[in-house]
Amino acid sequence: MNDDRLEKIERLIKIKKINEAQLELSKLGEEFNKNSEYLYLRSKIFYINKLYYAALDTLLIALEFEKKDKIYNLVAEIYDILGNKELSKKITDPNLRLQAVSSLKDELSGIRLPSSYFS
């Protein structure tokens, strides 16, 4: 967590004030688009609203910027809910997750970001 605004949003999500959290997120500007914590919180809200695919896409993009355990864990949790137990297990395993997510992204043409995006 690297910003007071993101910490505030995380607190709102924890106490289930989802609409308020969503409103606060919408106030943040484009400079947050590459911030993995911001993307994680957006995913959390998608997930709570049962928008599983929007949550997954956002988490997979967040992993392009930072490979955090909590991001992998939420990806695994969502695949478990969707019924893809095998993929969920692989992503839960710290030894297998990197390869599992990389293979998954290879199958998706719209997730990997061009190198120019990181410069």
């Binding site: 695919y53 997954l56 896409d57 997979l60 998954l104 998706l108 043409s109 719209g110 997730i111």
Partner: peptide, 27 residues
């Protein structure tokens, strides 16, 4: 195309239901 996670999961969930017709393209 299979550009994002929804289409990937759709394929995972439905591929065994046959007969089906799928023409998936990369681009």
């Amino acid at each position: 195309t299979q550009h994002k996670s929804s289409r990937h999961d759709m394929n995972f969930q439905l591929e065994k239901i046959k007969p089906n017709f799928v023409n998936r393209i990369d681009k």
